[in-house]
Amino acid sequence: MKYFYIILKLSIVYVAILLVSCSKNIYRKEKKLPQVAVVGMLHFVSKNNTINQNFTDVKDIRRQQEIKDIVQSLKVYNPTKIAVERPYKSENELNNNYRNYLNGSYKLTAEETDQIAFRLAKELNHKRLFLVHSPVQYAFDSAVVFAKKNGQSYLIDSITKNAKQLAKEYDQIAEKKTIKEAIYYLNTHKAIDKNHYSYILLSQIGNKQNKIGAEAVGDWYKSNIKIFENIRQLIDSNSERVLVIYGQGHLKILNQLIKDTPELELIMINKYLK
């Protein structure tokens, strides 16, 4: 009988804990959180990448229609703010060109900010766009030199091979199918993890005395945290739906930071690119 009461008490405690846990989860689901979605890109105008894709032609009639289709898909997400990475150096420059585009005095370049962000913002009657870029400063070139001098060239070869595979897969989809399908691929977990793997390889360059690769990747993370903070500061209310257009290599870290922030809800953009 004694053991029966002990088991009964433990059961009551367990049920109470379970109910409290469930109520917290229900509350979190019911509580409206600001949403953030990031579109990972291989830049239409490739610059400063370890490996560049071959496909960059977005201005012929067929590709222009495909971009318009991307814009319509992203419009369903209905972002309240659109944030971009490149190629503009200031929000003044960015929004001057956007305003000129609205009044018909600016011709869109091949950059994804112009091709996608400007068009989408116009469709949604946005008055402005937001620049969330933060300079990326990490000693990749120095790590390469160290690797070649210290018998670790195989790591550089692996990084290059991995990057080429990602670019090749993107090229094949873009050439044989559509730009939207190629961007959808870039935003799959498989492609995100593949790009991030290069940084794991980079972190292995070095020795006990000089962790040059790990330090470089640490600086890469620092840059991404600054980018995330720029994104987070755009949030003004729980009804925000921020869309960020950024280089695909940043996705692993940015998505993780958004997901791990209790005050934000991460939206996987492929939900809208199907």
Rank of each mutant, 00 (worst) to 15 (best):
F4I: 11
I6W: 07
I7C: 10
L8G: 07
S11C: 08
V13M: 01
L18C: 10
C22P: 00
R28D: 12
K29H: 14
K29Y: 15
E30Y: 14
K31H: 13
Q35K: 06
V39Q: 12
V45G: 12
N48P: 12
N48G: 14
N49G: 05
F55D: 00
F55Y: 09
V58F: 08
D60P: 12
Q65D: 13
Q65S: 12
D69C: 09
S73F: 12
K81T: 04
V84D: 06
E85M: 01
P87D: 14
Y88L: 04
E91V: 03
N95I: 08
R99G: 14
L108Y: 00
L108M: 07
A110T: 01
E111A: 12
E112A: 14
L120Q: 02
E123Y: 03
K127E: 11
L129K: 11
F130G: 02
H133V: 04
Q137Y: 11
A143M: 04
V144A: 00
A147H: 06
K148V: 10
K148C: 09
K149A: 13
G151S: 15
G151K: 15
Q152H: 15
L155V: 15
T160H: 14
A163C: 12
A163N: 14
A163E: 15
L166W: 10
A167F: 10
K168L: 13
E169Q: 14
D171Y: 04
I173M: 10
E175Q: 15
K177S: 11
T178N: 11
K180Q: 10
A182K: 13
Y184G: 01
Y185F: 13
L186Q: 05
N187V: 04
N187W: 05
N187I: 09
H189C: 03
K190H: 13
D193G: 08
D193P: 07
K194D: 12
S198C: 01
Y199N: 09
S203W: 00
I205T: 02
I205E: 02
K208A: 08
I212G: 06
E215L: 03
A216Q: 03
D219G: 02
K222Y: 08
K222D: 02
I227M: 09
E229K: 05
D236K: 15
S239F: 07
S239V: 10
V244K: 02
I245P: 12
Y246V: 01
Q248Y: 07
Q248R: 06
G249K: 07
H250M: 01
K252H: 14
I253V: 09
Q256N: 10
L257V: 06
K259T: 00
L266I: 01
I267H: 03
